[in-house]
Amino acid sequence: MTALSYLVIIFGYLALLLFIFGIIYRAWRWSRLPQGFSWGLFPKPTRWVVTSMLWKILAWPTLFKADRLLWAGALFFHLGLLVLFAGHLGSFIDIASLGERIGIPSESSYVIGITAGTIVAITILFYISRRLFIRRSSEISVFADHFWLWVLLVVVLVGIYSRVFHEVSSDAVRDFALSVVAFNPALPPQNFWFLMHVLLSEFFIIYAVIGKPIHLVGQLFTQYILVSEEGS
């Protein structure tokens, strides 16, 4: 268990470092590339450039037109992730009292977390089945496309499992997380499933920076070029 604990701590720092500097580096690389040819693609908004960009980034109207099922699946997936992300902030700050202030009782965090986790797991299965059974997607999928979906699925399932069957007190998690952030890492709660969940998440965070999840950031650049560039 202790070896696992050390791995969690080491990869935790690595993930944090790569996540912050990796995203900055990639964004910097993209931003310094010359624009070259004007990328006119019409119709372009004549006003509300920022709003149209946000609309495209948050609501994916183009995907809605192309593939509604994928759009719906992706929407649930990302909303689920967003809820999980917010819930996991509880590892660092006391979100329970924050939630109560806006009318979410702290007891419901369990239900919300498990529901969001289940939704994400189901939508990952939907993604996987698309890659397996829908021809236009399966014929172009490579090992990496499947692999990371499975990794994320395992992260989520282990998370749900440890929450349901091996719950670690949120105070213990927060004590550990804050000690890591303070560069004075304490030993994490000694719970195998919890540690596996954290370690796999750390792997996924590292992948997120070098792999496809970077679209979260890259989107800003692409949509900015397409929406606002000279030529409108």
């Binding site: 990639r26 993209w30 590339l33 010359p34 624009q35 070259g36 040819f37 990328w39 995907l63 192309a66 593939d67 994928l70 698309r130 829908i134 236009r136 997607s137 172009i140 999928s141 490579v142 496309d145 496809k212 970077i214 679209h215 890259g218 989107q219 650049f221 692409t222 070029i225 397409l226």
Partner: peptide, 27 residues
């Protein structure tokens, strides 16, 4: 030599971001 290619910025973003979803195929 990305910097010298005329469509460098969007092409590089495209290569980095395409997630092989295949939503474009039927279009």
């Amino acid at each position: 030599e990305w910097e010298k290619l005329p469509y460098s910025k969007l092409v590089k973003l495209n290569l980095d971001l395409c997630s092989n979803c295949g939503a474009c195929a039927d279009e």
